[in-house]
Design a protein around this nucleic acid. Sequence first.
DNA 1: CGGACCATTGAACTCGATTCAATGACGGAG
DNA 2: CTCCGTCATTGAATCGAGTTCAATGGTCCG
Lengths: 215, 215
Amino acid sequence: MPTSAHTRPQTDSRRGQLLELGLQLFGSRPYDDVSIDDIAREAGISKGLLYHYFGGKRDFYVAVVAEASARLRAATEPDPALDPRSRIVAGLGAYLDFVDARAAAFTALMRGGLGTDPEIAGVIDSTRQVFVDRFVEGLGLTAPRPVFRTAVRAWIGAVEAASLDWITHRDLPRDTLLMLLLSSLGAHLVVASRLDPAAGVVLTDVEPLLGQLGL
Amino acid sequence: MPTSAHTRPQTDSRRGQLLELGLQLFGSRPYDDVSIDDIAREAGISKGLLYHYFGGKRDFYVAVVAEASARLRAATEPDPALDPRSRIVAGLGAYLDFVDARAAAFTALMRGGLGTDPEIAGVIDSTRQVFVDRFVEGLGLTAPRPVFRTAVRAWIGAVEAASLDWITHRDLPRDTLLMLLLSSLGAHLVVASRLDPAAGVVLTDVEPLLGQLGL
DNA sequence: CGGACCATTGAACTCGATTCAATGACGGAG
DNA sequence: CTCCGTCATTGAATCGAGTTCAATGGTCCG
């Protein structure tokens, strides 16, 4: 096979090196302010080589955003051994820690340059979808009722906005923010339950959570 | 809008015409896919004229986003004659109606192309700030405590995410979404109150609202 | 030892953004 | 009515970033 063992590591490492660099560059400067020459110079390679690994600048950017997404997802991988509430607390905590530690990568992902680009929007939306699915599944909500989908989606929006606000101002204890968002999730779910009586069955799963949250 | 090629009186602001066109174009295609030639051709003017009214393509884009922001703000202007709750309901309703009617302009604003561009981010953030201020002021929350600022900011994020979800799927009655978001606001405020006991004074303003929401 | 493959290069090319000197229409002043 | 200044408008020239590609050289495998 042409895909022998010796070339892959080399390829992967260079690709990884470029992605890491892209995370830095796009995390600190606008897309248009990062030229191919900049990337090549900082990576110590020629312009042309970038095209060996990526289809072009836009393609490279998409890969960088996808990389940021993958890291965020990996960092917040839920632990199946935990009960639902602990799993959410752990996942949300890991999310905040990631935001705190890798603010550049996070903003690069969320503020994603080239906003109306469907490919970028796809990466970001699928990332959000992963979180929606995790929480919906973790809570035992099987039927994807519109009200619940929108409620969870709204909550994800709240998490993202609060996270950006948090790392911007840095005037809130991490755990305070965590409690705020946890309560917000509970509230969204109970409100959704009341607005969609036909899905009343799930309330039995939601109520205990709310009790623990003090709502 | 006028369809005829040359029924345009001189009194018609060319600048306004271009902004209107930009709203359409950037609302339906990625930034990179809209060339100066495209804009000029569709506007029936020469490339060079665009530079007479705007500093350049990026500058033009910023102006378009600012225009979208201005329209959204104007459409949701609060009515001082109303009591706090009615004002919020009216404002939120107007917001949803705007999103519904001018989906292109809204997504152009919120998904703002060139995400990491500080100037664009500034326009979007200041738009959000206007909403934060309106709601905070409307509720009588004078002191901008971090917890409340973050809570309101999180709620704005929830509104935006829910709005995008709403116009994407269109499987939720407007008033259901409105109730969801209204309850979400109430929940965020009461949670913030509990997390920041020093700001307990504001609870007297929040509690009545919650009662009306059935929380 | 030879050949193939593949990472890598640098120069050439393309195409869109930007600049600018020239044009002409309009409106006011004499 | 005519001259003049202003200003919207143009089209061609320029510029630069993104992209392409044929050539190179090292490395591994048979």
